[in-house]
Simulated assay, not measured.
Amino acid sequence: MQGLVHSTESFGSADGPGVRYIIFLKGCPMRCRYCHNPDTWAGEGGTMMDADALLDQAERYRGYWGPEGGITVSGGEALLQMDFLLDLFTRAHERGINTCLDTSLAPFTREEPFFSKFERLMDACDLVMADIKHIDPEQHLALTGRDNANILDCLSHLSEIGQPMWIRHVLVPGITDVDEYLYRTRDFIAGLKTVERVEVLPYHTLGVFKWKELGLPYTLEGVEPPTPERVERATKILRGQL
């Protein structure tokens, strides 16, 4: 069992609790207009690795993790490589390693065989960090190229089965930084029982050079990052403080 790995990061401090070893897998079904890793979209290139080889690398840094650290698998979209991800998380738990999945949840379906594998994956997953790209279906489609019905369904399912979650929301001026949408997102999050943290990630342009290198048109040209005041307001709204 091997997975297609884009890259790894030894000391992640913003991708789950504690210090984390981050594994970025290749392939993503979304085409988010603000994506800062478009080089992970294609399900080709990268390096084929098996779970034990990755975990052996990760454990070299275990002394730095502290009581809360571990591994975080991101992408791309890790759920596209479900079989490998399940093998990786299962083996990680056998080693006593904390596991975190950073995901858009875009591949989620209740159809088989995906759903049964997903349920087994959650048994070996300590935390899901999920992005809510946009709460409005039409706006979500325009922003990512995909509908959000299955994503919201997955979040509700994770709440029902007691899966700990962190919710992340990228704040893009004029697109997601709209009070109406923020309050609708807040109302949805309020109905989830297992959300431990809500984070607002300000839109930035640090990955624009990758779009240019790949010859991709960047459709948010000219959009500036949100002001600190807007980030603070959005955070308060999503956390039910405003």
Rank of each mutant, 00 (worst) to 15 (best):
H6C: 07
P17F: 01
V19T: 12
I23A: 09
L25V: 03
K26W: 11
P38Q: 05
D39R: 05
W41Y: 13
W41K: 12
T47W: 05
E59W: 05
E59V: 11
R62T: 12
G70D: 04
G75P: 01
A78S: 09
Q81S: 03
D83Q: 10
L88W: 00
L88P: 00
F89I: 02
A92C: 06
E94R: 15
D102V: 10
T103S: 15
L105H: 01
P107Q: 07
F108L: 09
S116F: 08
K117V: 04
K117R: 13
F118Y: 11
M122T: 13
D123K: 14
C125Y: 03
M129V: 15
E138K: 14
N148F: 00
S156I: 07
H157P: 01
S159D: 11
I161E: 03
I175F: 09
T176A: 08
V178C: 08
E180V: 13
Y181Q: 08
Y183P: 00
R186E: 08
D187E: 15
I189M: 11
A190Q: 14
T194V: 02
E199M: 03
V200N: 05
P202S: 01
Y203V: 02
H204R: 08
L206H: 00
G207H: 05
K210G: 02
L214Q: 10
P225E: 03
T227S: 14
P228N: 11
T235W: 10
K236D: 12
Q241Y: 10
Q241A: 14
Q241N: 10
